[in-house]
Simulated assay, not measured.
Amino acid sequence: MNKKKLAAFAAVAVLFGALGAYLGVKKQPQGPVTTAIAPTGGPAHSASTHLYAQSLNDLAGKTESLDKWKGKPLLVNFWATWCAPCVQEMPELSALADEEAGKRFNVIGIGIDSPSAMSEFAAKHNIKYPLYVGGMGGTELSRGFGNPSGGLPFTVLIGADGQVKKTYLGKLKFDELKADLAAL
């Protein structure tokens, strides 16, 4: 390849790199994408039914059936230790779960991560709600709730009737979440 062609390719690469950097800086940060799913007025949402049919390991390696969470509103948070927004929201989510202590609703986390990374994180950050190891199967569970890309964090609010009341993609806005919880 001659020097002129090499210089032309380098110039094009620099131009696209600069354009990408410019667009990345100009993009405004967005809050979570929320979706309300209309209740069917009948049986539980199929994704909820599928969730409650699962048995996942807790951080101690004990297999637990998720059907024990049926019958009371449930907030399910899909997360990973390598996901910065997940890590940022977890202390506040843990404080909310600790404050509530299961009186009106329960909070669980399904980690898309390794058991060792999750255990280390939970101990370091004193997470107060039950965490389950979902692995890549956790991503599939979140897709059933309307998260086709498997983005994290992804949180699902399920009513006591098993109906999906709302989903949140991205870092939670806790004022909005508390209002949604109060409306249950």
Rank of each mutant, 00 (worst) to 15 (best):
M1E: 05
M1K: 03
N2D: 13
L6A: 09
A8P: 00
F9S: 07
A11Q: 03
A11W: 00
V12W: 01
A13S: 06
V14P: 00
L15H: 00
G17M: 05
G17D: 06
L19R: 04
L19V: 14
G20R: 01
G20T: 04
G20E: 10
A21C: 01
Y22Q: 08
V25F: 01
V25Q: 02
K26H: 09
K27S: 06
P29R: 07
G31L: 04
P32Q: 08
P32T: 12
P32F: 12
T35W: 00
T35C: 03
A38V: 11
P39R: 10
T40R: 13
G42E: 10
G42R: 05
G42M: 09
P43D: 15
A44G: 11
A44F: 13
H45L: 08
S46E: 13
S48N: 06
H50S: 14
L51W: 04
L51H: 04
N57I: 00
L59V: 14
A60T: 15
G61M: 05
G61L: 02
L66Q: 03
K68W: 11
K70G: 10
L74Q: 03
L74N: 04
L75W: 01
W79H: 07
A80Q: 06
A80N: 02
T81F: 07
P85A: 09
P85S: 07
Q88R: 12
M90N: 00
P91F: 14
E92S: 12
E92Q: 15
L96C: 12
A97L: 10
D98Q: 15
E100A: 08
A101Y: 05
G102F: 13
G102R: 02
R104A: 10
N106F: 13
N106S: 15
I108R: 11
G109L: 12
D113T: 15
D113V: 14
A117F: 14
S119W: 08
A122D: 09
H125K: 15
Y129P: 04
P130A: 12
G134F: 07
G134N: 03
G135L: 02
M136C: 01
G138E: 02
T139L: 15
L141D: 01
S142V: 03
R143F: 11
G146V: 03
N147P: 00
P148E: 03
G150Y: 05
L152M: 15
P153K: 14
F154L: 05
F154I: 06
F154K: 04
T155P: 00
L157P: 00
A160P: 00
D161L: 08
G162E: 07
G162C: 05
G162T: 07
K166R: 14
T167Q: 12
T167V: 07
G170H: 09
G170A: 06
K173M: 07
F174E: 06
K178I: 00
K178G: 10
D180Q: 09
L184S: 05
